[in-house]
Amino acid sequence: MHPIRKTFDTNESFPLSFAYKNTKSSLSELPDHFHDWYEIVYVYRGQGTFFIDHTFYDMKQGDLFLIPGNTIHRATPDKELPVTSTAIYFSPSLAQAPNLDEAFSYLRSFEQAAELRNYKFETLLPQRQQIEFTLESIQTELKHSHLGQRQAIYLKLLELLLYLQRELGPERKTTNGDSSVGPLWMRDILLYIEQHYCDDIRLTSLAKQASVSPAHFSRVFKQLIGMNITTYLMTKRIIRAKQLLSESDVNIGIIAEMCGFDSLPHFHAMFKRMLGMTPAAARKAMR
């Protein structure tokens, strides 16, 4: 089973989607998925677990998650106290800052989260009040079709991104993963995979490293991550390949080899199956 590549049914001229104060359940949440858009998730109340990239995070009141595009993630709400949260999804093209001779990017907080491999931020009460006020303002605009509705929502999004960048600066309180989900060896294995997923990694060697049987490893991995180890590795490699196609002019065959694929035809087949287009078409679309 491949993770879901989520797409958004919105007007191309306004690439933004808003889900306000939704109370989650295990049935309503998507399984492991990723998408090109960036995502902000703010938690009002409840509990749960968020798996992002390679780390499990606890979800609780006041937590804020910044998820860059093409990042594997899955939320698992608590059965007794499910999470109520707001999510904003938007294309990074919507948040391009004009050149005002400042070294500034509306997406810098997401870039820092990716650099630190740390996607959770614990907010203080004044920060919560400001974030909740802005999210409520966006919801109000969506409910009433006033003149300049999209422009107002767009400006409020930029205001929120600017606020988060100022508040979630170098001194911000972050966490390197705080969930007690699963055995300790699983967290160690996920970190190892994150550092070596383009290498020749096999189930037997991972199970040996974790000091468990391959059957037990497979069962626990699928239960906690939502997909088997082969699919997880394949997804990480394809996402990395897409990044390299976007950022460099390196030959596609070399990129396939760099990302751990044995042959170019296999790379083409897996890339198209997961992203719906060939590597060459993806490179052209991202330029």
Results as ranks from 00 to 15, higher is better:
54 H>C: 13
54 H>G: 13
55 T>L: 05
56 F>G: 00
56 F>S: 01
57 Y>Q: 00
57 Y>F: 05
57 Y>L: 07
58 D>Q: 10
58 D>F: 02
60 K>T: 15
60 K>R: 14
63 D>A: 04
63 D>T: 14
63 D>L: 01
64 L>S: 07
65 F>I: 01
65 F>V: 03
65 F>N: 01
65 F>R: 02
65 F>W: 02
66 L>N: 09
67 I>E: 06
69 G>W: 00
69 G>K: 02
69 G>D: 03
70 N>P: 04
70 N>W: 06
70 N>V: 05
70 N>Q: 08
71 T>D: 06
71 T>W: 01
71 T>S: 09
71 T>I: 11
71 T>M: 07
72 I>D: 01
73 H>R: 08
73 H>F: 10
73 H>V: 06
74 R>P: 06
74 R>K: 15
74 R>I: 08
74 R>G: 05
75 A>H: 00
75 A>G: 03
75 A>W: 00
75 A>V: 01
75 A>F: 00
76 T>V: 09
77 P>T: 02
77 P>Y: 11
80 E>L: 04
80 E>W: 01
80 E>R: 04
80 E>I: 13
82 P>Q: 12
82 P>R: 05
83 V>I: 11
83 V>A: 08
83 V>P: 03
84 T>N: 05
84 T>L: 03
85 S>T: 03
86 T>A: 05
87 A>D: 05
89 Y>V: 13
89 Y>P: 10
90 F>H: 04
90 F>P: 00
91 S>Y: 02
91 S>K: 01
91 S>T: 02
91 S>H: 10
93 S>C: 05
93 S>H: 12
93 S>T: 12
93 S>R: 13
93 S>P: 07
94 L>E: 12
95 A>E: 00
95 A>C: 02
96 Q>S: 02
97 A>T: 08
99 N>D: 11
99 N>K: 06
99 N>V: 04
100 L>W: 09
100 L>R: 14
100 L>Q: 13
101 D>S: 12
101 D>Y: 10
103 A>V: 14
103 A>W: 10
104 F>P: 08
105 S>V: 04
105 S>H: 00
106 Y>R: 03
107 L>M: 15
107 L>W: 13
109 S>C: 15
110 F>V: 07
110 F>I: 09
110 F>M: 09
110 F>L: 09
110 F>K: 11
111 E>T: 03
111 E>F: 01
111 E>K: 03
112 Q>P: 06
112 Q>V: 13
112 Q>N: 13
112 Q>S: 08
112 Q>D: 09
113 A>V: 14
113 A>S: 15
114 A>C: 10
114 A>R: 15
114 A>M: 11
114 A>W: 08
114 A>L: 14
115 E>I: 11
115 E>D: 14
115 E>T: 14
116 L>V: 09
117 R>C: 07
117 R>Q: 13
117 R>D: 11
117 R>L: 06
117 R>S: 15
118 N>W: 10
118 N>K: 15
118 N>H: 14
118 N>A: 15
118 N>P: 04
118 N>R: 15
119 Y>P: 03
120 K>W: 07
121 F>Y: 15
